[in-house]
Design a binder for these strands. Structure first.
Lengths: 176, 176
DNA sequence: TATATCTTGGATATTTTTTATCTTCAATAG
DNA sequence: CTATTGAAGATAAAAAATATCCAAGATATA
């Protein structure tokens, strides 16, 4: 029962990227530096997030990463699933069929009750993650964090942000 | 986001042990054979369950494992926590303090909002697991499973059960 | 004392996670 | 229009965690 460390970094990255001006991007190296994590590892998570549509990656000297849609429409579940993969945490290996008294496979049409119960509980977890939107997390952060930390974040963004792709601005006309 | 493989075996073991007559025990070797898993590895999970009080281990030639309390009072959460440990799946490494612009530690008294949101979702998962009682899972199993599989399970228990410890019978006067 | 069981610790193998290195791509300068 | 540069993307290697197995010790029964 362990979430990979990358999930924490991924969420923090998304939260930071939400502060970018529309269309601008931030390179992976800057994200890694800001969070004090290995850049080569972070890139893997960023790519998965991009593949899932949570982020958009822009190649080239002006490139980097930015959010794929508004922070209001990104849930923590989107991020967790992108990084960890869609498979449920509980994987039923059908050990009920490995018994010495196992029947023919047809006798196990109905799903294993243990699997059903475990997956049902997991749905509750996913539902709760789905309800947590990135925008809300950021709002809470801005309300509670030390003003100096906030200011540093803004300055950092100003310093490292890249123009991104000009065409992208018109394609993502939903700020915040 | 992955539950260790032992969780599935642990739940199946607990479900099988619930079918024992009060006071009787089943050796680890029988549990491993019934589920087609490695005995030496299963023992580690059984011992964790015993340490948590979910199971009781009885040494000696008449020994083996049995439930530590009635199946009604054992939740899937009890089993999952016993096997996986009590730590939450999301472990906040406080990477917000690893930023190049980090402040003194005192500035981070308030908990990280991301951590709070993730732990809140995890509480929903645990709550759902807590609501799933072993007795309910077994009832569902008995209602849906193939009668032949049920019969084999009973016969297997009859064949392999051990007398257990005589003193234990009076100590656990809550059947089912 | 002999046996059947749990208990404990370590050795080994497999998988997953993390880090490092190299290749490809697109924008700009000359 | 080619070369350079700063970035993403892909591949390979190192480290860590997990799963499995094996063997010697402890405990209780007969």
């Amino acid at each position: 029962m362990k979430l990979s460390e990358g999930v924490e970094a991924a969420i923090h990255c998304a939260a930071l990227l939400a502060g970018l001006a529309p269309g601008k991007t931030l390179p992976a190296a800057a994200l890694a530096e800001y969070h004090g994590v290995s850049a080569s590892y972070l890139v893997k998570h960023l790519n998965r997030l991009a593949a899932a549509g949570v982020l958009v990656s822009v190649p080239g000297p002006h490139g980097g990463y930015r959010l794929g849609r508004s922070a209001k429409r990104i849930s923590l579940l989107d991020i967790v699933l992108a990084v960890e993969g869609p498979e449920p945490a509980f994987r039923c290996a059908e050990i009920r069929q490995r018994s010495p008294g196992a029947l023919e496979p047809d006798a196990y049409q109905k799903p294993c009750g243990i699997k059903v119960a475990m997956l049902k509980a997991e749905q509750a977890w996913r539902q709760a993650l789905r309800a947590e939107r990135l925008a809300d997390v950021i709002a809470g952060y801005e309300a509670e964090a030390d003003p100096r930390a906030l200011a540093f974040g803004c300055a950092f963004l100003q310093r490292h942000q890249r123009p991104g792709d000009a065409a992208a601005m018109s394609a993502s006309p939903d700020p915040q």
